[in-house]
Design a protein around this nucleic acid. Structure first.
Lengths: 149, 149
DNA sequence: TATTAAAAAGCAACATAGTTGCAAAATAAT
DNA sequence: ATTATTTTGCAACTATGTTGCTTTTTAATA
């Protein structure tokens, strides 16, 4: 990993925060860093463990909430009732997430991935029902785990 | 509501419990009753409020867990991280739920419904991913709320 | 760069959610 | 009716999430 990459990440962090009218603080930089340095989603617990030694629990909650509000990250509901958070693609605006992609939870490594290229299908509902948002979570075995089996 | 109906429900409760090797206890009858007397799903909180005055919190947890294990009810993940529970159709066996239907959460009345006739669509995943289970939750306005708007 | 207003962090206290071990009570089998 | 088994209730505990308030940090200004 070159110095360049680290600088890139730091720049992207500063850009993301400034663009969303969030002041640049240590905890926000640290937590954004966690999201940017890996591909999957993070559960609150993960974040607390990785950043919680430096920051108060409450700060982690408030930081994540701020990121969700601003459209920097989005939540992924899972069957075990532990919300995961993942970075939004660049075009989510404050309060208006439009992450119409499918989420994948690996039952083997327990990682969660955004399948950005898989769009949620049209669901034909019974008469009278009106859909506003469709959430699709697929459970199964991910790419990496399949290779190492 | 006729006496007949109430007897029917009681009979169905006894049948469901016996078939799943669960002894017939007051809390199990009461909680099953809650599910049978209404169409939607119930959150843990709902159940605790409606049955919790008579039974200990722990009993509610254990009862729901037993029902899930036996395939009497299934869980529905929702975006607000509050698991809902709903009755399974008759053919779920212990440890093997096959509820391949879509769930609907009304953003107006906040009720959750199993759309038993709407099956989950096939999701075409990227190479390497293997699907085991697909969960689809649709948020929007339900039949009843639409009529009263 | 120093000053200051605004925002965020940390702390404490609290509320809710979920778990475990064990003794008492209820159920089911005999 | 008696007894073995299962379930319940209780207490204590861990984890998760929230709120009010004070201190610290950030960013805007002189």
């Amino acid at each position: 990993m070159s110095n360049k990459t680290i600088e890139d990440i730091e720049n992207r962090i500063a850009f993301l925060l400034k663009r969303n009218d969030l002041s640049v603080t240590e905890s926000r930089r640290k937590i954004l860093h966690l999201f940017l340095e890996q591909p999957g989603a993070l559960a609150h617990g993960d974040i607390e463990r990785k950043a919680g030694e430096k920051f108060d629990r409450v700060t982690v909650y408030r930081t994540l909430q701020a990121f969700v509000d601003k459209g920097i990250i989005h939540t992924i509901p899972t069957a075990d009732n532990s919300i995961r958070y993942a970075l939004c693609k660049d075009d989510c605006s404050a309060g208006h997430h439009h992450d119409h992609h499918v989420h994948f939870v690996c039952t083997h490594c327990n990682n969660t991935y955004c399948l950005d290229d898989v769009v949620t299908p049209e669901i034909k509902l019974p008469k009278g029902y009106h859909a506003e948002h469709v959430e699709v979570v697929v459970e199964g075995i991910c790419k990496n785990c399949r290779l190492s089996m």
